[in-house]
Design a protein around this nucleic acid. Structure first.
Length: 498
RNA sequence: GGCGCCGUACCCAAGUGGUAAGGGAGCAGUCUGCAAAACUGCGAUGCAGCGGUUCGAACCCGCUCGGCGCCUCCA
């Protein structure tokens, strides 16, 4: 039984979708005017994991994640770079997809754009005016907060409190300082669409209402996003949507915590952010491996809590992931008896029960990972006793199956410690220089290199057989200087890794 | 000013009324030609501090200290 912490109720609610068997969820995506940072990565990954676990639990998931592609910041960026807004948004949508692919975040089933829903937005705005919840001033349309009774329900704020905190210098044409724009008249040179109120563009909040209603219906199950969206964005979405439809909007509201740097929120304005592509660029590991350690790092903390990002934390995550892939390497080997086979099913059963109950408890990924760590330990012990080929395969499959929920452990056995061969994407610090040297970097990780290492490893095994330990140690030292570690197996052969 | 969050071992991190999961790092041991990996053992009598409620509190209540977030764009 899945429980989800619902911002709306302030507690963990039992999750039951409106339509049995199908979950409809909407997550606020990004405004496409710049590269994504780790904070965006966390949000995207967390909701990807929610979706994966719902699917694992047997639900069909209709998952919509939008792109905000009309916005002041986009217009500003386009003007700065003397290009069209379309160029900016196309660039960063592509960048978003690249980043998500490297992170292992699956595309949503629907990825709507604000610019493609102008008719829906205009219609929704008209409805709100017709219902007396919105008013027109010049070419602008505002939502009238005072006319909507439940305002503040999500963020637990009272209208009076908001009034007290409202900034001075608000638009005098607004009837209340908290009234917000549904439609903004266009200034010369800005992108604009026709409307009953003249040429203009939508306000920020209305697009999410229009797109979620369009793709998921007036009432749907889960709405997610970062904590910072609770107010005003999600509060306003609720007001608009419920105001227009008269029905319940999203039933469960999930909000992820921030990624921090030295206890402070990572944000553009503070300048203390790392972009996703920067992390991949700076990583000394190949793309797939960097993605894996990043995922492990991001999921090792429960999604609602704050998460401090640092090189050390990433290194620790890498070491932890190493333990799993060391086990997978053992599982991939042949030989051994079946003395431990009888213990495997009980161990898998224990792990699965623990894993599911952790995930059922508001997607508690750290506890779910602990369950997998438990299985890792159990399987290593059974492997010391001996596991048949069939059992080894079964064990590996179990990690793959449960790991699928966390987007973890899908890599093949030897891939984890490959050297770096990242081909940089645009927007990284040394993108152009690295592109030039990319073929060389990739060559160092190629088959030829692996064959050379393999030959040395074999030579060392021969030396060991002849008890020529001096020569064997020489080879090991030489390989170690290249970052390669050798592990001798009981049968006299060796495995190696970087 | 309003609303809210965080403070658990060297580090990361669960636990939210029944007597401190898990990981990383470290130390010791087993195994090994030596290593590595694996395995075994060690590690908070205590959960920022002080009071209170309770048979019992890291968990509930109050106060204090330290840090942060939202209220303006923000994952």
């Amino acid at each position: 039984m899945l429980k989800i912490y619902n911002t709306l109720t302030g507690k963990k609610d039992v999750f039951e979708p409106l339509v049995p068997g199908t979950v409809r969820m909407y997550v606020c995506g990004v405004t496409v005017y710049d590269y994504c940072h780790i904070g965006h990565a966390r949000s995207a990954l967390v909701f990807d994991v929610v979706r994966r676990y719902l699917e694992y639990s047997g639900f069909r998931v209709e998952f919509a994640k939008n792109f905000t592609d009309v916005d002041d910041k986009i217009i500003k960026r386009a003007n700065e770079q003397h290009v069209s807004c379309d160029t900016i948004t196309a660039t960063y949508i592509q960048a978003y997809h690249d980043d998500m692919r490297r992170l292992g975040v699956r595309p949503a089933s629907i990825e709507p754009k604000a610019t493609e829903h102008m008719a829906d937005i205009v219609r929704l705005t008209e409805t709100l005016i017709a219902k007396g919840l919105a008013y027109q001033v010049d070419g602008d349309v505002y939502f009238e907060v005072a006319k909507y009774g439940d305002y503040g329900r999500l963020s637990k704020r009272k209208m009076e409190d908001l009034q007290a905190g409202a900034r001075v210098g608000v638009d005098e044409r607004k009837r209340h300082p908290m009234d917000f724009a549904l439609w903004k008249s266009a200034k010369p040179g800005e992108p604009a669409w026709p409307s009953p109120w003249g040429q203009g563009r939508p306000g920020w909040h209305i697009e999410c209402s229009a797109m979620s209603i369009r793709h998921l219906g007036e009432t749907f199950d889960i709405h997610g996003g970062g904590m910072d969206l609770i107010f005003p964005h999600h509060e306003n979405e609720i007001a608009q949507s419920c105001g227009a439809t008269g029905k319940e909007f999203a039933r469960y509201w999930m909000h992820n915590g921030f990624v921090q740097i030295n206890q402070e929120k990572m944000s553009k304005s503070l300048g203390n952010f790392f972009t996703i592509r920067e992390i991949f660029e700076k990583s000394e590991w190949a793309e797939a491996e960097t993605g894996e350690m990043l995922r492990y790092f991001l999921l090792a903390t429960q999604y609602r809590g704050p998460l401090d990002f640092s090189d050390q934390a990433l290194k620790e995550a890498k070491n932890a992931v190493n333990g799993f892939y060391d086990l997978f390497a053992r599982l991939a080997e042949t030989g051994g008896n079946a003395s431990g086979d009888a213990g495997l099913n009980p161990a898998i059963e224990r792990c699965t029960v623990a894993f599911q109950s952790a995930m059922d408890d508001d997607i508690n990924t750290p506890v779910a990972i602990a369950a997998l760590q438990g299985l890792r330990s159990d399987v290593n012990k059974l492997l010391d006793q001996g596991l048949s080929a069939k059992s080894r395969k079964q064990a590996r499959e179990e990690f793959r199956s449960l790991g699928q929920c966390l987007a973890l452990f899908q890599l093949d056995k030897w891939q984890f410690n490959r050297p770096k061969n990242v081909v940089p994407l645009a927007g990284t610090a040394k993108a152009s220089a690295r592109v030039m040297s990319a073929p060389l970097i990739m060559h160092s990780g190629g088959d030829e290199e692996e064959q050379r290492i393999q030959r040395l490893v074999e030579e060392r095994c021969e030396a060991k057989k002849r008890k020529e330990f001096k020569r064997a140690d020489e080879i090991r030292t030489e390989l170690a200087s290249q970052g390669i570690t050798i592990e001798d197996k009981p049968d006299g052969t060796s495995r190696w890794k970087r």
